[in-house]
Design a protein around this nucleic acid. Structure first.
Ligand code: MN
Ligand code: MN
Ligand code: MN
Ligand code: MN
Lengths: 223, 223
DNA sequence: CGGTAGTGTTCGCTCATTCTAACATAAGAA
DNA sequence: TTCTTATGTTAGAATGAGCGAACACTACCG
């Protein structure tokens, strides 16, 4: 427990990464963060210690990190910014889907609350960003949906493409190239074994996509 | 002469400040920069030396600093960003005039070229920002206008309010409160001596404003 | 239980930014 | 011209952010 004001690009990115990796209550390993953030392990340990003493994470030597409530609040705020900015870029400034993540990754650390709420209002307080991720509300609430990876849908089952879960512009582009747009109606026809490709009908057209990509195409299933 | 990539908020703000203070060829004193940037003198000297060795300014011990061509290019680019952002905030996001400077001061360091050109296009490639400052074009050209401070206009003379030359939100608010909006048609009626107030007709209504504020209200004069 | 492979931390450095205190120079007054 | 004051620079230190090399734990295998 400390006071330190502590805020910066590095800190915000760190907290966001912890939030994203920390499913449930699991502690996040420093080396995992090292990979995700593209920083060396010593840098991550160092940041973990600084944020621990700032009260934003609970860090325990050799057993990783979890967000405190204060840390979680900041993470959600940054994620809200990120996703609203992405949507704004697509809707108001003509960005392509694959262009927005990089830009938002920087802008999220520079815009004021005033700015965020102005674009939120202009966009009509949206709840989903252009990749299909939920946008946290100003008070930190997230829309919950139970989504299944396309890679796990049995042949015969289907639904709507609800999320393209990647921030890699190349993969995103690939998904669209292969004919899997957000909101598309999809029905699985078949899947090869050994992590083979999935064949599916998307909006009535037959499409094929590899296993690892299909893992990142999330479906809101219908009976 | 060096290579260093060197780019950052501090550097960009420094170059912008030098640009603004450097009328003609005059060297800018480190202490002047110290005031404007709200940094101590040693910090400024230090930055001057680092930018000298990066080839962005010409710094001479005890005689201040001038931009090199490379430095000027960066300064103009940052100013373009700043002013386009200000205009965008007013036109598209409903900001008040006095709110935009602070926001732009941060955003100018975070937005990409892609972003700047997107908003420039959306705004119709404007040449004047919401304070009346000229917006440098992408290739660094500035609209030139010969403007006179209201404080120097003889009684009987007049013109159009072309620029409110302050970044202080309070002063800006004050100018508008006193009835001196951009584009207003103004005619000087009288002025008290000893740096006294100026009386003027603005859009037909009689107004009064103090000397120091009148110095910052720039007029495009008519015969 | 003991040993090793893999994980995670410390140590010691570097750079950018900023500050305070101490020192140096330049410019104008006498 | 010499002295004083105002202006400007160095010295020394701190903080945040990162890195590579060396060291320390854990966990799992036999
Ligand atoms: Mn994103
Ligand atoms: Mn970011
Ligand atoms: Mn401004
Ligand atoms: Mn700035």
């Amino acid at each position: 427990m400390s006071d330190h004001p502590l805020q910066s690009k590095s800190v915000e990115n760190f907290l966001k990464a912890v939030y994203a990796l920390q499913e449930g209550d699991d502690r996040v390993a420093t080396n995992t963060l090292s990979d995700v953030l593209n920083k060396t392990a010593p840098s991550v340990t160092d940041m973990a210690q600084r944020l621990e003493s700032a009260g934003l994470v609970d860090y325990q030597k050799y057993r990783g990190v979890v967000l405190t409530e204060a840390g979680r609040e900041i993470a959600l705020k940054v994620i809200r910014r990120h996703r609203l900015i992405e949507l704004y870029l697509v809707r108001e400034l003509g960005y392509q889907l694959h262009e927005v993540h990089g830009e938002a990754e920087d802008l999220e650390h520079a815009v004021s609350d005033r700015f965020v709420e102005a674009i939120a209002k202009k966009l009509g307080d949206p709840v989903i960003d252009p990749h299909g991720d939920p946008i946290p509300s100003a008070d930190g609430t997230l829309l919950y949906r139970h989504l299944m990876p396309l890679s796990e849908l049995e042949p015969g089952r289907g639904g709507v493409i609800a999320q393209l879960k990647t921030s890699d512009p190349e993969m995103l582009q690939h998904m669209l190239d292969r004919g899997f747009p957000l909101q598309g109606r999809v029905e699985v026809i078949a899947r090869d074994p050994f992590q083979g490709p999935t064949m599916a009908l998307v909006n009535g057209i037959q499409r094929v996509v590899g296993y690892h990509v299909a893992e990142c195409i999330l479906i809101e299933t219908s009976p």
